[in-house]
Write a protein that binds this DNA or RNA. Structure first.
Lengths: 345, 345
DNA sequence: GCCGAAGTGGGGAACGTTGCCCACGAGGGT
DNA sequence: ACCCTCGTGGGCAACGTTCCCCACTTCGGC
C-alpha cells in the first residue's frame, strides 16, 4: 500500500546531518563560496554523493538564481529553431544553466501567457525567438529579467538583439535571380500578426528589400508580393495564387525554405518544371533544402551561431552587464538546382 | 541610475494590504477554496487586477504544485513532435497547466541531465517522448512524479504508456508493397542507442514486423535491413547503401518520413525514378509527405491524439489516479504516388 | 434563552535554500 | 601581555505561498 507513497526528497538538511556540519556549510560548498576548509569540503562532497543530493530549483529561486534560461519559441515546427537551440544549449551547458522551452503560438495573447509563465517561474534569462509582442512590452520584461531578442532588428537600451542581416540575404537572392535573366520575379512573404513595428521584423525586411532591389533594376512594374506564412502550406497557397496570374512569374523568391517547398509543390502540381519553367529560391538553408531531389537555392543563415551568441549575451547580462548589444550574422547565398535561366518566350 | 534597478515583484502581501484582508484570504481566493464570502472575493479580485498580480511558481512549488508539466523531447527537429505538443497543450491549457519542454539529446547521459532538471524544478508531471533511459530508471522517477511515456510499448504499474500500434502500421506498409507485386523490399531502421529493452521500442517493432510480414509471405530470403537513424541524413545514407547492392531492392519501407525523404533523395541522385524504378514508403504522415512533389505513401499516426491523451492521463495522475493505463492509437495507410508496381525485369 | 452548527476570516508554521552576521581560536606584530 | 586580523564554522532571518487550525459571529431549533 505504501509503494505509492512519494518518498521525501533529500534536502540540504539531510546532507548536513550526514556530514555532521551545518546547512550553511553545505550551502557554501554548493556555491563554492569563501570560508570552507578543504577537509570540510571533502566531507560535504562525500555526503552529497552518498545521498545523491541535488538542490531544489524552487527553493533556490526564492533566494536568487534558478540556473535556468527560458526560450520562447513561436512553435517547434520550423527546423531552423533546432539549430538555434543547439547553439544556445552549448553555451548554457558550459555555465551549468538549463534551457527550457515554451511555445508562444500564433497570436500575441497566447504568447503573452507563455512569457508570463517564464517570468513566473523566475528564469534567470529569456531568449525570445521572433516574438510577436510590442517593443514596450519587451522592454518592460527586460527590466525585470535579462532578455535577448532573436530575429528582430530593434535597437533597445534594455535588451540585446541577435539577427541575420536579412537585407543582405534578400538582396543576394533577388540579385541572383535577376542575374540569371529573370524579370517577372514574385515574392512570398508572411502576413504580420505581431505588435512590433513592421520595420523591425525579418519578414518585412525581406519583402521590402525585394521591392527595393526590383526598383533598383527598373523592375518596378514587375513587383508582386503575396503575404501568407512561412510554412509549407503558406508557400503552397501563395504560389498557387501567383501561378494563377494572367502572366505568371518566371521566378519566386520565398521568404523561407518551408514556403519554398510549398511553392515547389504548387509548381509541380501545375505541371511546371523547376527550374525549367520557373525558378524558386528560399531562405534559411534548412537540411531539407540540401536533399538532391529538392536541391533548393537558398540563403544560408547560421542558426547555431545565432543561438550560441544569444546564450553568451544572456549569460553576460545575468552576470551584470547593462550595456546593450546588437549582433548580426552575415548570410550567404547557396546556389543549387532550383534556379536557372528563365524559359525562352 | 535607478532605471536599471529591478522592481520588486508584486506579492500576495501587497494584494492583501491593498484589499485590506489577510494573505490567507487572498490565497483562498486564488485557489478558490472554501470559506470566502462573495464580497471578500470581489475585493480581492479587484486588488489582484489593479496590481496585476500573478503568483510566483517557485513559492508555490515549495508548498505543493507548480502547475507545470515537463516534456522531455529527444530533440525538436522532427515535425511529428510538434503535433504531440499541440495535443498536450490543448489539454494542459484547459486545466491551467503550462507545458515546458526540454531537450534530451542523443545519449542517455545528456537525457539524464535533462530529466533531473525537470525533477529539480518540481514539475507536477512529466511526459517522456521516446526516452532512451532504462525502464527501472523510468519507474524510479515515476514513483516521485506522475509520468507518461510516449512511444514505448512498456507495461508498467507506475507509469502510463501512450503509443502507436507500430506493429499494425508496419504491417500495413509492407503488405501494401507486397500487394503491389514487390518482393525485394528493404527496410531502413534506427540504430538503438537506448537503455530500453529492444522489444519495447517503436523502431525495433517496426523492423521486426517488417521481418515477420516478409517471412509470412515466404520472402525470408529477401529480408534486408539497414539501421541508421530516423532523419533525412539517415535515410539518405541507408538508401545509398541499399542501392549499392548487387541486386538492388525494388521497394524501401523507411521507418519514418524524414528517412523516406532522404531515401528519395538518394534514389533521385542515382538516377532512379520513384515509383517507376523504386517504390518508397514512410511512417508518420508529416505535412511534408503530403506535398504534391513529394507525395509520399506513408503510415498515418495521429500525433495530436497521442499528445492530447498523454495530457489527459497526466492530469488524471496528478489528481491521484494510481492505476496504470496503456493507450494505443491505430494507424492507417495513406497511399500516395511514391509507391507503385515494381519495374518489369 | 440556550446550544450547536454553519459561515467567515485570520494567525502562524512550515517548505529548502541563501547570505548576512557573529563567534571562536590561532597567529603575528607591537 | 595585549590587540588585530584572518580563517573557519554556524545561527538565523528572510524569500512567497499554502493550509491547518482556531476564533468570532450569526442563525435556527428546541
Amino acid at each position: 500500500m505504501d509503494s505509492g507513497a512519494r518518498r521525501r526528497r533529500v534536502t540540504i538538511v539531510d546532507v548536513a546531518s550526514r556530514a555532521e556540519v551545518s546547512t550553511t556549510a553545505v550551502s557554501k560548498v554548493l556555491r563554492n563560496a569563501y570560508g570552507v576548509s578543504p577537509a570540510m569540503r571533502e566531507r560535504v562532497r562525500a555526503a552529497i554523493d552518498e545521498l545523491d543530493y541535488r538542490p531544489q530549483a524552487a527553493a533556490r529561486a526564492m533566494r536568487g538564481r534558478t540556473f535556468t534560461i527560458g526560450v520562447l519559441l513561436p512553435h517547434i515546427r520550423n527546423p531552423f529553431f533546432a539549430d538555434i537551440l543547439d547553439g544556445l544549449q552549448e553555451q548554457a551547458g558550459k555555465a551549468d544553466y538549463q534551457a527550457i522551452m515554451i511555445q508562444g503560438g500564433e497570436n500575441p495573447q497566447a504568447e503573452e501567457r507563455a512569457i508570463n509563465a517564464l517570468v513566473d517561474r523566475q528564469v534567470d534569462g529569456i531568449l525570445m525567438v521572433v516574438p510577436l509582442t510590442s517593443r514596450p512590452r519587451l522592454e518592460e520584461i527586460a527590466k525585470d529579467v535579462p532578455t535577448v531578442v532573436l530575429g528582430r532588428h530593434e535597437r533597445s537600451p534594455v535588451f540585446d538583439s541577435v539577427f541575420d542581416d536579412d537585407e543582405l540575404g534578400a538582396e543576394l537572392a533577388v540579385e541572383h535571380l535577376i542575374a540569371l535573366g529573370h524579370r517577372r520575379i514574385a515574392h512570398i512573404g508572411q502576413k504580420d500578426k505581431s505588435r512590433a513595428r513592421p520595420v523591425d521584423l525579418l519578414h518585412t525586411i525581406r519583402a521590402e528589400t525585394y521591392r527595393r532591389v526590383m526598383r533598383d533594376h527598373g523592375l518596378d512594374g514587375e513587383i508582386d508580393v503575396v503575404a501568407t506564412s512561412y510554412t509549407e502550406e503558406g508557400g503552397y497557397v501563395g504560389a498557387r495564387e501567383l501561378l494563377g496570374r494572367p502572366e505568371r512569374p518566371t521566378a519566386i523568391f520565398a521568404g523561407a525554405d518551408l514556403a519554398a517547398l510549398g511553392a515547389m509543390a504548387a509548381a509541380h502540381e501545375a505541371g511546371l518544371s523547376v527550374p525549367g519553367d520557373i525558378s524558386i529560391a528560399g531562405y534559411d538553408n534548412t537540411r531539407m533544402a540540401a536533399l538532391p531531389n529538392i536541391s533548393l537555392t537558398t540563403v544560408e543563415q547560421d542558426g547555431v551561431v545565432m543561438g550560441r551568441t544569444s546564450g553568451r549575451l544572456l549569460l553576460e547580462r545575468i552576470e551584470g552587464r547593462t550595456s546593450s548589444v546588437r549582433f548580426s550574422v552575415t548570410p550567404s547565398l547557396v546556389v543549387r538546382d532550383s534556379t536557372g535561366a528563365p524559359p525562352r518566350p
